[in-house]
Design a protein around this nucleic acid. Structure first.
Lengths: 340, 340
DNA sequence: TATCTTTGCGCAAACGATTGAGCTAACCAA
DNA sequence: TTGGTTAGCTCAATCGTTTGCGCAAAGATA
């Protein structure tokens, strides 16, 4: 069936496109279109299988009911979950989502933003890939925007993210309570706010327990490779660590690989705790204790905040940190006194 | 900076919007716009930070350079990978992607299709959620469409999918070669073509080896719950199976859980092989041998086929099956003769 | 009968781009 | 002087909607 337009309905019913448009937009009362006319029009709409042309509506109304979502890597289950939740939540408000991948690159991010602006999206949700807010603050004057997962300090851009500090604090406390005194933390990229907050939580907690001197922080990438290398190095150094705090689940995998190669058992020889959730972590041997980010809530809140900005031009709060959950499993054990 | 339009450039330079449009579309030569005028125009474009309004272009050109992607569940890493690859590949052709979630529901699928048609996407890639091709064949007359991962038999709709038959054949052969004679296969929804082809490959291979009588096929959903329940039942029945073929990685997790509860070790007590890939499968104890689908290739081919249909109106081939890889790990062991 | 009110709807511009069909001025040839 | 060519542009319609303004006819009021 070829696509029909308002003009087709007009020809078929004899009414003007104006009248038809009004009936279809629920303004029949307001403009006193008789019930009889309304029925004729609605019938023709049905018969001709009319469907509004969203592109034309968007042009006229200056609104596309579309939001752009920028993520650094859709392959990553974490961001896939965000995308999924954002798409689902936006749908509830009758918004469609355009997902673009920025490949952790500021250049790709800028390009993606140009695309979204050109396509007149009503607003943008982004997990920033650059470590400089200048592009985004400029953008913010043109379009509503909400940062998600990552954000910038000393910057008014509204964001929603996990309270990474608190998560790291909880994890570290758990290890300390189990008697661990020599805890290695393998972080991600040092310039990333996510890493920074987690490391800070870890450091502060150790300091509070009077353990700061023996804290070890290293690594520079959220990757399996990094977790592997850093663990290997630590084991070779024999610096007597009894617990490892992996700041992401990719890092965790590297840690596990290295421990296995050295014939070490979790948690008997080494306690392990990780950031991020994944169903598979319950199927490892042993299941891994972890800090789970509230991805669903973050996404829902971000969409709400964005749509508030779009529709009412208001910004409720500058930034919002949501609390992570701690999932207790079996990869952390009390430190026995006969251990070094 | 407020958005500027062709008309703004026109006011600023004194040229008509026609001329400006032509310069920007690389038709300056063709319409004999002097080099001097071109430079003035390009300068104004730069100064006013002009960006074409894609919505207006789409309306006029009857093309949105957008493709719609329908997946049954974006949360599922398998579909997330598809989405990622489709978005990446479409980007190469300068297309943007709208991803909609159909929640495995024919109703949501129809609704999503209405949305996409209303928004004038140039074409659609879908992992069908309904088990009836009627809506999609009707759609096919209106818009280019490509099915992906799932498809319909006796139906001309073009598709790209894994050769599930071959994958199951390879897996079953591997088990038979290891000496297994009593192999349980836990399938997904029986009406799904994916499940059907895999079960067929499994059945045919067993038959060829003269083992058909002892084949066990059960289950009805691609879920962890299903894998768990069916394995429990089988173990309770004590029907002497020595190997399990899980038709998806969600099912696999259920299988593992059940085996653990019964204190059985993989592969000493039970050999296990699965469909689908996931990095975590290498970190299980032991790493799981599996049939890995060529997700990347499938997505790339689907995008190519779709864009061919959009731009040249041609359909290369009706359907295309790509070969899966078999990833050999340690979850399959030779059947020892002292086993039942 | 004249004026006012209400009912029921249509005209035409606008959103921002593209495009077929002209149009003017300059130049050249005869 | 006339006619033709060419360079270098512009006009106005079009894509499919929405909307401010307006308008005719019927009924009510005086």
């Amino acid at each position: 069936m070829k696509k029909s337009t308002l003009s087709d309905i007009s020809k078929s019913t004899g009414f003007s496109v104006t009248t038809i448009s009004r009936v279809l937009n629920g303004k029949a009362e307001q403009f006193r279109i008789s019930r009889e006319s309304q029925n004729k029009i609605l019938e023709a709409v049905r018969v001709l299988n009319y469907r509004p042309n969203f592109v034309a509506q968007s042009l006229r109304n200056m609104s596309t009911r579309t939001i752009g979502l920028l993520v650094p890597c859709i392959d990553n289950p974490f961001f896939a979950n965000i995308a999924s939740a954002v798409i689902g939540e936006a749908h509830k408000y009758d918004y469609t989502v355009m997902v673009l991948d920025t490949h952790e690159s500021a250049k790709d991010e800028n390009e993606a933003i140009e695309t979204l602006l050109s396509r007149n999206v009503d607003g943008i949700i982004t997990v920033p890939s650059s470590d400089n807010p200048s592009t985004l603050t400029a953008l913010d004057r043109e379009k509503p925007i909400i940062l998600i997962d990552r954000y910038f300090e000393n910057c008014h851009l509204p964001y929603v993210a996990t309270d990474n500090y608190q998560g790291a604090l909880d994890a570290t406390e758990l290890l300390i309570k189990a008697g661990h005194k020599n805890i290695m933390c393998i972080q991600g990229p040092p310039q990333s706010i996510t890493s920074q907050r987690r490391v800070q939580g870890y450091r502060d907690t150790l300091a509070k327990a009077g353990l700061s001197d023996r804290a070890i922080v290293c690594g520079n990438e959220f990757s399996t490779q990094n977790g592997y290398v850093e663990t290997k190095l630590a084991l070779t150094r024999k610096d007597g660590i009894s617990a490892i705090f992996a700041l992401s689940n990719t890092i965790l995998l590297g840690v596990i690989k290295a421990l296995r190669e050295h014939g070490l058992t979790i948690p008997a020889d080494m306690s392990v705790i990780s950031f991020d959730d994944n169903i598979y972590l319950d199927f490892l041997n042993p299941p891994v204790t972890r800090i789970s980010q509230p991805i669903e809530s973050i996404s829902i809140v971000a969409v709400k905040m964005l749509i508030d900005r779009i529709q009412r031009g208001i910004t409720q709060s500058e930034g919002l940190l949501l609390q992570p959950d701690i999932l207790l499993r079996e990869s952390v054990a009390p430190l026995l006194s006969n251990k070094p």
